[in-house]
Nucleic acid binder design. Structure first.
Lengths: 361, 361
DNA sequence: TTGTACGCGTTATCAA
DNA sequence: TTGATAACGCGTACAA
């Protein structure tokens, strides 16, 4: 009997055959029983023998054999930008747990590298290693690559709208930007600046659009600056703050595209001797646990990132199983939520009166 | 010919057979040529036909079939604690690139969940899904689970010493703690506290040991406090700072077990109106990009995390291939490096004179 | 109610 | 220099 045990790196593992022998039945039957095949009826005693044998031998199906036979690996890929920051941990967690619920494994990858680097792409995606891919979209320079990938693999774009027939799952980024802006307006700010995320990225533009729209409705104009760099980093956030405040002294508040950018902005504000929120308010679109430990604590608009991950997995599984023709999804529930902390307040007195007078309400 | 193409979710993929047919040779030969089998010599023209055919059909070997045949999945598992912070990104990157260099894929997992949750464990590790596992060790409550896992899978412990015959790869945590402490001593501090990492974790104890040793050599004693909680979070770091400063007013400097803890400490110091570094110095063991954006900028001791990841992969591959009997590794090169920023300085004047007088040198 | 037998795509052994 | 052929472990259509 021991001769039928499979050897793997010094360890022995039971296979279907050994279980079948121990239970005194055929391998086919064992397979059907263990896979809960509904249209197979057998004696309860046999079923018990089989299950007992499997347990006794500690049987676990061989993933590669099963994958080969089923032509399914049971693995979903998730490719994100900026893995070195914590901005997407919610998304990751949501996707991971949703995938696990369906018995799928999540393979994490760097979206930039995956799109740019061919060897990486083939290592991760080729040869049926993953059954489908969720990839962060919204960066124009990578759109073509993503389309290429999607031609060979069920693909869902996350954090951006779909394109070229590839379904997308995204959040209400515009609403989040609008919420941040209207909160600043409500506090009395009339001259507001924007600290951008990654240039030409969808999230950056959508969040900015929400801010612009809200300000326009109030008859105001958003102060921005174009940097050389790619943007979206703590460093760039600080640079932008400095640049805008140099050019537009009247600015009393900023919306930051994300917490990382906001962190850089807070840092530079401190360097310039600008007191937040007394002299300047800063609010971030996107929330992470770090916001609560910044100095001052960062006000933010929270977006349902976990939900995004869950929905993305659901959409991808639909696509894989061809259950439905998946359309674009924009997640509006739960809605973006304002989290007021310490980095926002009323504009400084002189500023309030003068701008109010100038712009009216 | 097209009939020989394999279908996978609407997409067609070439297999070995189709390449062989196009090249007019047998599948075995194609396999050997494409795998660069050294002890096979053939006509240059045939080789070219084969390579051309493979390229033409865009042939990529099927991962599951190859894994089944070779009894190797080509995937390494990496299980870490605290995935929601950025403390281990260096390790992750080092491991990822080292693995990729050897043609291996990295599967990321949460160490806690992997050790605790049986379904997760079987999803990730069972059935030959990974060829080996690197798992963060050093937490006593999980040691037994890790030993259990290692019985069934080539395993290397990272960030902690080995145990039960399982090889470990770790950094010179003690040296890092010692370096932080001696820097504070050199600045003139004589009463120093410690803000702990995760309780009963190896890194926490090793770093603390380094600090204690250095202080003992100078005839000083380290101020610590035991919390209820698990520790190692920004929240716990702040609590500890408050507790220690309440009990020991004379403390003028802290070593924080990591940047997350330090962040919480800076936050609470600000809340208490304690000026860093004027009234109090804080230095963190472990460096991340965030340190440079804290207020004040956080002084830190950098450890070669990337290297840790690289070495762990190398060790694991040795274990898998049974090339060597892998012993424990303690990485001392490059040595821990002091990064002086703004959160450290001389102790306040009154404190310096009094403690210097009291403790002597 | 259960067993048989084939094939998934690849690699390795043996033979020519 | 190249080709048959036999596994690897599993799932399933078909037969009994």
């Amino acid at each position: 009997l021991l001769a039928d045990l499979r050897e793997g790196g010094d360890r022995v593992t039971a296979n279907l055959k050994s279980v079948a022998e121990l239970a005194g039945v055929s391998t086919g039957l064992v397979s059907r029983v263990l896979n809960q095949d509904p249209n197979v009826s057998l004696r309860e005693s046999t079923r018990r023998r089989i299950v007992a044998a499997a347990k006794e031998l500690n049987y676990v199906p061989q993933a590669s054999a099963r994958a080969l036979r089923r032509n399914r690996s049971g693995v979903l890929g998730l490719a994100l930008h900026d893995l070195s920051s914590t901005v997407s941990v919610g998304l990751l967690e949501g996707a991971r747990s949703a995938a696990a619920d369906q018995g799928y494994l999540l393979l994490l990858a760097d979206a930039d590298e995956l799109a740019t680097n061919a060897p990486t792409r083939s290592l991760y995606l080729a040869g049926g290693r993953v059954d489908g891919l969720m990839i962060q979209g919204g960066r124009r320079d990578l759109d073509e690559r993503i389309a290429e990938i999607a031609r060979g693999l069920p693909t869902v774009i996350v954090k951006a709208p779909g394109q070229n027939g590839i379904p997308g799952v995204r959040l209400a980024e515009e609403d989040a930007g609008a919420l941040a802006a209207s909160y600043l307006l409500q506090l009395g700010h009339r001259s507001i600046g924007y600290l951008g995320g990654v240039r030409t990225s969808f999230t950056d533009e959508a969040r900015r659009d929400g801010v612009v729209q809200t300000l326009n409705d109030a008859g105001l104009v958003l102060r921005t600056v174009e940097l050389e760099s790619k943007g979206g980093t703590a460093h760039s956030g600080g640079l932008e703050l400095k640049a805008i405040m140099t050019e537009h002294r009247e600015v009393t508040a900023f919306v930051a595209a994300n917490v990382v950018v906001a962190m850089g902005a807070l840092r530079v504000a401190a360097d310039l001797g600008i007191s937040v929120p007394r002299d300047l308010s800063i609010i971030s679109v996107q929330e992470t646990w770090t916001a609560d430990f910044m100095i001052p604590r960062l006000s933010a608009v929270a977006l349902p990132m976990r939900r995004l991950g869950e929905v993305a997995v659901a959409q991808l599984l639909c696509l894989i199983n061809e259950d439905s023709a998946p359309a674009d999804v924009r997640i509006t529930e739960p809605a973006p939520a304002l989290i007021c902390r310490e980095s926002t307040g009323a504009p400084p007195q002189n500023s309030v009166s003068s701008s109010s007078a100038a712009f009216g309400a």
